[in-house]
């Protein structure tokens, strides 16, 4: 049935299946993004009222230590979460890839259940744990910092955010570790290397790509983390995403919210660009690989 078609016609027809997704993206993604970009340059008159064009919103964010600190806190939280999930996720992924069958099943369940449970529910779970008479505070005893344990602290937000994003890290790492050719490991051990030596010389370096990919995925997601900082951090620990919500929903300062969002996205895209560049140099699968 494709017989009569010219080469050019076939080329053009080949684009047809892409039309729906591109249309959806254009209306539901490109337009709103553009709207935010434009809004970020509008002047905030009063709640919900916008005036002419200005760069004031960006100057305000970049010069006021309060807003700048909020962006910084978001980045710090994202960075710490990326490191923490990598450290915590690696042993799980390793056991998942190398462990006996029963352990695989147990770990898979333990990782999948949180992944499939809404982050609202999981943050709520941490709220209960962090409460004064919660288990965590009881166990931590005198070690618990401050009277209410980890509730409303940056450490508490970090722990809960790491928990929310850990499954993503584990699955990314597992994907890489599982694909590692076991013959390499066997060869190394046959050549007399210890198991641990093999791990540090073969397994870890070869899976580094996955670690970086996982950390970037976690970093990008954590920069816009909203629920956990909102619920665990409370009113006094504010990050960019919670402030965007506050400014856009409660204070109706849409230009300021938009400018913060633009800066947040710029940072996230920059991270991705660096990674794509990095992985191209090392022959990795690029930014799209992280979802795989």
């Amino acid at each position: 049935m494709t017989a009569g078609r010219t080469r050019g016609g076939a080329r053009r027809a080949a684009w047809l299946p892409l039309a729906p997704v591109l249309t959806l993206y254009a209306i539901q993604f490109v337009v709103p993004m553009a709207l935010v970009a434009v809004t970020s340059f509008r002047r905030h008159e009063s709640a919900g009222q916008m005036g002419g064009f200005t760069t004031d919103n960006f100057t305000k964010i970049l010069q006021d230590p309060y807003y700048l600190g909020m962006l910084g806190r978001s980045l710090l939280l994202a960075g710490e979460t990326a490191v923490l999930t990598a450290v915590l996720g690696y042993p799980i992924a390793y056991a998942l890839a190398r462990g006996p069958r029963w352990l695989k099943v147990v770990l898979l369940v333990v990782v999948m259940v949180p992944l499939m449970t809404s982050s609202v529910v999981r943050s709520f779970g941490w709220m209960v744990l962090f409460a004064r008479d919660g288990l965590f505070s009881t166990l931590a005893g005198p070690l618990g910092d401050g009277p209410a344990g980890l509730m409303y602290t940056s450490t508490g937000v970090l722990v809960a955010t790491a928990h929310v994003l850990l499954p993503f890290m584990v699955l990314t790492l597992y994907g890489v570790l599982d694909r590692l050719n076991p013959t390499l490991v066997h060869a190394s051990m046959n050549l007399g290397a210890s198991r641990t030596g093999t791990f540090f010389r073969i397994t870890l370096p070869l899976s580094m790509n996955g670690v970086v990919a996982g950390m970037l995925l976690v970093f990008a997601t954590a920069t816009s983390a909203f629920v956990t900082p909102q619920l665990i951090g409370g009113t006094r620990y504010r990050v960019a995403a919670t402030e965007i919500y506050e400014q856009s929903i409660n204070l109706l300062n849409w230009p300021l919210a938009s400018a913060m969002a633009v800066l947040l996205v710029a940072i996230a895209l920059l991270t991705m660009a660096v990674y794509t560049r990095l992985s191209r140099d090392t022959g990795g699968s690029g930014a799209t690989g992280i979802i795989g």
Partner: peptide
């Protein structure tokens, strides 16, 4: 890859 809060904000606007 884009913080979802940005385009959701855009949709709301």
């Amino acid at each position: 890859m884009v913080p979802s809060i940005m385009y959701v904000l855009g949709l709301m606007l």
